[in-house]
Amino acid sequence: MSATPPLIEAITRSLHHLAARQRVIAGNVANNDTPHYQAQEIAAPDFSALLAEQLEGSRAVRVSHPAIAASARMLALGATPPRDTRITRDEEVSETKPDGNNVSLEDQLLKLGQVQADYAALTSIYRKQLALLNEAIGH
Score class of each variant (00 low, 15 high):
I11L: 09
G78L: 05
I125R: 05
I25R: 02
N134H: 11
L75W: 12
I125P: 01
S124R: 07
R73I: 08
T34Q: 02
V29F: 12
S124G: 06
I25F: 10
A60L: 11
A79H: 08
P6A: 14
A39G: 15
G57Q: 03
L109C: 06
A49R: 08
I11N: 01
G113T: 10
V61D: 12
G27K: 05
A39Y: 11
Y37V: 05
A70T: 01
D90W: 08
Q114D: 13
T85Y: 10
E135Y: 02
L112P: 03
R13H: 03
D107F: 05
N32M: 10
L133I: 07
T12S: 11
P66C: 00
A121E: 08
V103M: 08
M74N: 09
S94L: 13
I87Y: 05
Y126S: 10
Y119W: 13
R62P: 01
A60E: 14
S94Q: 13
H139D: 09
T80G: 07
E91F: 15
K97T: 11
K97P: 12
R83F: 15
N28I: 13
I125M: 08
N31S: 06
I11K: 03
A26Y: 14
R13Q: 04
A44L: 03
S71L: 01
I25Q: 10
I137L: 07
N31L: 10
S71Y: 02
T34F: 06
E106A: 08
T80S: 14
R89L: 09
I125G: 02
Y126G: 13
H16V: 07
T4F: 13
L109W: 02
S58Y: 14
A131L: 12
R59L: 14
A70Y: 00
S94W: 15
T80H: 08
I68G: 04
I125L: 14
T34I: 06
L51Y: 11
A76Q: 07
S58N: 15
S14H: 12
Q116G: 09
G78F: 03
A136I: 05
S48C: 00
G27V: 09
G78I: 00
G138Y: 01
A43I: 04
R73N: 03
K128L: 10
T80L: 10
R13M: 09
